[in-house]
Amino acid sequence: MATYLVCGGAGYIGSHMCKHLHEAGHHVVVCDDLSTGHAGALLWGAHAYGSIEDLEFLRSLFSQYQFDGVLHFAALSVVAESMREPQRYYRNNVAATLNLLRVMREFEVNKFVFSSTAAVFGEPQARMISEDHPTVPLNPYGLSKLMVEQVLRDSCRAYGLRAVALRYFNAAGADPYGRIGEAHDPETHLIPKLVRKALGEDLSVSINGTDYPTEDGTCIRDYVHVDDLAQAHVLALDHLDHAVGMHSFNLGNGTGHSVKQVVDAVREVTGERLDIPVAGRRAGDPSHLVASSKFARSVLGWEPRYTRIGDVIETAVRWHGSETCAAWLETLDGAEVAVQSHLGDDNKPQQYRQG
């Protein structure tokens, strides 16, 4: 049994990662300040309440546990917000990651798996995006992730760090048993917005542009189930047992679905009519973003289980229709609601709580 630190483990993808590590027999410690994560997602392992921006908190945490590796999901990830608040993104996504890497080096922890993004590529120059595609990010979010990838590359050369950056395309779906899933307010992702609208929520959803050079005129994206992403991280940890240096992998199903196809799939799964109005194009939306995951499949042995968009959507419907999801969304009116659940009688955070 190994002990892994999961930074951002109360978030959407991070919580699914904790589930997979637990099921693989590992000990999990979650570092999360619950600013965007959910206390209800802390179902596997111990919870250390704090931020990776706090260097002394990290040193205290690393002195309590002997970590075999670190998985990093604690980043801000809304593109539009990164355009409005670029310094916030560089501080949280880059400077805080430097804190984490500094403490890892002090405590001689040398395995690191980084949650990266397809946003590092920018405007696609090929129908299928492979790892050697040019990286020209279009926004501070994508650039902040690319900066960290460069920091990891240099740290591997200089300090003997072993690192993997996993570049996700469109994460979707939820735990098939409906225990955890995606819960944002406001929601910005297509599938949860469509599902929540189909289930009766009064959400504004539109098809942005129908004049793209695609078969039905709408944008095409590569949707990959969150459990498949988590499994890739487990394989990446195994890979770092024998691989040195820095490695980057694209993670997607390799099959694109248009916006209209996703709308039709949600209609089919839910049985709802779901009338979605058409609006104009959004600035910066490329017509076609699909991953080539051949490298991850051949090197890591990764094989996505959820290859049908309908199966991905079914897990999202099960989650968004649950009482748990509704309760999580209610807490988003104030982060203090989630934080309060982790305060002791002395009104101080309980840094280590077993889930």
Rank of each mutant, 00 (worst) to 15 (best):
I313E: 00
R153H: 07
M17R: 09
P134N: 15
V234I: 15
Q354L: 14
S63H: 09
L343A: 04
I276N: 11
M104I: 13
L101I: 07
M128L: 12
E81D: 10
V151A: 11
G142E: 00
E81M: 08
D32K: 02
P124W: 02
A174V: 07
L146N: 08
L240T: 08
S248F: 08
A326N: 10
V278G: 11
I313Q: 05
V113W: 03
Y90E: 12
H72P: 02
G254I: 02
T324F: 01
E85I: 00
V244N: 13
A316T: 11
G200N: 05
E81P: 05
V290L: 03
E182K: 12
L274P: 09
M128F: 15
F62N: 08
R273D: 15
G142I: 10
L343P: 01
D216P: 06
R102I: 01
S248P: 06
G142T: 04
R308Q: 10
A95N: 12
L98E: 10
G40Y: 00
H47G: 05
E123I: 13
I220S: 04
F121H: 08
V299Y: 13
G310H: 14
G334A: 13
I52W: 07
I207V: 14
D68H: 09
M246W: 07
D264P: 03
L100G: 03
I276A: 03
L76N: 06
S322V: 04
G178C: 02
V337A: 08
D32E: 01
R308M: 13
L138D: 07
D333A: 14
T218D: 01
